[in-house]
Amino acid sequence: MSDRLDVRKTYKLVVNGAFTRSESGRSYEVTNAAGEFWANVAQGSRKDLRDAVRAARAAQAKWWAATAYNRGQVIYRLAEMAESRRAELAEHVAAAEGIDPAAAAASVGRGIDRIVWYAGWTDKVTQVFGGANPVAGPFFNFSLPVPCGVVGVVAPEDSSFEGFVDAVLAPLATGNAVVAIASETRPTPAILLGEMTTTADVPAGLCNVLSGRRDELAAALCTHEDVDGVDLAGAGDAAGALAVLAAGSIKRVLRARGHGRAGDDARRLRAFIETSTVWHTIGQ
């Protein structure tokens, strides 16, 4: 018999840099891959989602106002935070995905390496996706990638950590704010990463993580008129219908092509940037 009582954790939403229970007061049980009880998780509501979008909108301006170099440092710090909680993440990934501890540790390692990789991208996005254009006149003409704004992410249902990292870090690295709906059945690794963002010097509200019923949240995310783009990586069969909802407010939509396919990296990075064109006279 243990001489300590268990300190059990309820996994909460990460909204505006705070850990909140759902406004609705609801929670649901998450099981591990073997079907045993794993954790109680907050079940986010549409109002939580609305609050998250509002927070994201406010945070995005601060994030984009920071230098690209600084954004890279902040994302690198997120990797540092994840690194020191590797064992915990691996335990959750193993339970969620039903894989052996070694495979889970390897998956978490790859995910953290991806965070570092995205940290490196922040000050290279402009060079790779922007450029100087030839024009028929005495002008410079530049194409500059700028973030869309607030990006909604329906995270992959199966890949609870690696898939979440890719879906969330790509828009963050290009200067967007994110409202992510974690995997419904395997949310805890995503929630842990959300917790880490609050200790990584990320502006409060930049990266919001909601757990709950996908059917309920994804539709509200796609119809929300103040969301500028959605990544439907984990929407599965509902992706088509959700894309139609997103079209109502002319959002950019990224559909899944299967995690880890060749060329997916650039596709993700490019998905939520827009091109601003600047003309400037050549000095006389």
């Binding site: 609305r50 979008v53 909108r57 509200a220 119809t223 929300h224 008129e225 103040d226 109502g248 407010s249």
Partner: peptide, 9 residues
Amino acid sequence: RGAYVRPDE
């Protein structure tokens, strides 16, 4: 409308 609205509406 049944959808959340942009503040700059």
